[in-house]
Simulated assay, not measured.
Amino acid sequence: MTPVFRTSRRPRPVREANPTFVLVHGVCSSSLMWAPVQRELALLGHRSFAVDLPGHGFEAQYPAAYQAPQNLDAWAAEPSKLAQVTLQDNIDMVVDAVGRLAEHGPVILVGASLGGTTITGVGNTVPDLVSRLVYISGWSCVQRANPIEYMQEPEFGDNLLAPLAALNVGDPAELGVGRANYRTADPVMLAALKASMMADGTDEQFRAFLNILQPDESLAVMTADARGHADTWGTIARTYIRLTDDRSLPVAMQDRLIAEADALTPGNPYDVHTLATSHVGFLLRPAEVAKILDGLTV
C-alpha cells in the first residue's frame, strides 16, 4: 500500500488575478541577480519573470583577454557587442514580454538601478499594460534626461564611485561602452568597489556577486532621454524602495527622484518603502523585498 503523507499546514488561498512580477536588472548585470528575490516570491505564491536585456545574460561578451591571465591591452581594443544597443532596444524587449505576460493577468514591473530607465520607458509606451512600477534604488528620471546628467547634481555627492575609474579598460568614446575589469585582483580596487556596492555583505558574498557581473555596458543606454511623461508613465501606480545605505545611488538622490516625480503627478505620488541596505545589498535580504512586493498585490 502506498503511504499517504499529510501536512498540518493549510495551503495559502490563491488570490484573484495574481500578478506577474517582471524584474529588470541594472548595469552590467543580468536576470541571475534576481534569483534570491524570485525564490522568495515563489514561496509567497507569485509568478515572476526576470529579463535579460539585449546583450546580457547568455548573450554577454566575455573575451578570452578578460579571463585569467588577463591581457588588458588586447581587451581594451576588443569591439563590444553592446556598442549598438540603445535604451529603445531595452524598452522594446520588455514591452514584448509585458504584452505576452499581460494575457495571463496584471503585470508589476520592477527595476533596480539603471533598470529604472527601462521600466520608465515601458511605462511611457504601454501604460495600460502595467499595473504598477516599482523602483529599487532605481533611476526614475523626470527633470534631467538621464543618470549621467543627474550625476552632476549635489545630491549625488555622497557616492563612492570616483575611485572606481581605475577599473575602466579602453576608451569608452571609441568602444561605445563603459568597460570595467571586475576580475581585478587589486585589493584596493576591490575594497572600493565593495564599499560602493555591497558594504553590508561579507567578502565572500561580494565576490559571489562580482562573478555574475559582465564587464561592458552601453553608453547609449546611460545617456538616452529616459524621462517619464505625466500623461503615460505618470498615470501608473508606482512604488519606490529607498536604500538608505546606498553609496552608488545615494539616498539623497533617490529622495530627489521621488520628489520630482511626485511634483510632476501630485495626484499619483510614490508609495515609498525603506530598507537599510547598500546598492545591491537588498539581494542579501530577499525575504524583505518579497514582503514589500507581496504587499503591493493586496
Rank of each mutant, 00 (worst) to 15 (best):
A112K: 11
V126K: 06
K291I: 09
L275N: 00
D186M: 00
T232P: 00
P163E: 00
P215A: 11
A65D: 11
M1I: 12
P163Y: 02
A276E: 09
L129W: 05
G99L: 03
D294R: 14
T297D: 04
W139S: 07
D262T: 02
S29C: 09
Y135Q: 03
A180E: 10
V130W: 06
L257P: 04
R100M: 01
L43W: 08
T125W: 01
R285I: 11
P36C: 05
I241N: 08
Q152S: 12
T265F: 08
Q152T: 14
R183L: 02
E155F: 11
V280G: 00
S80Y: 04
S218I: 15
H56V: 07
P163M: 01
I108E: 10
R256A: 10
N90G: 09
A112N: 15
A259N: 04
S48T: 01
T2S: 10
S29V: 02
R132C: 08
V130E: 04
D245V: 03
E103V: 10
Y240L: 15
P54E: 03
K194G: 00
L43E: 13
G178Y: 13
F282A: 08
M93Q: 15
P250S: 14
M33R: 07
S131A: 12
G99C: 02
A77H: 07
G111E: 10
M222N: 11
Q70R: 11
N18P: 15
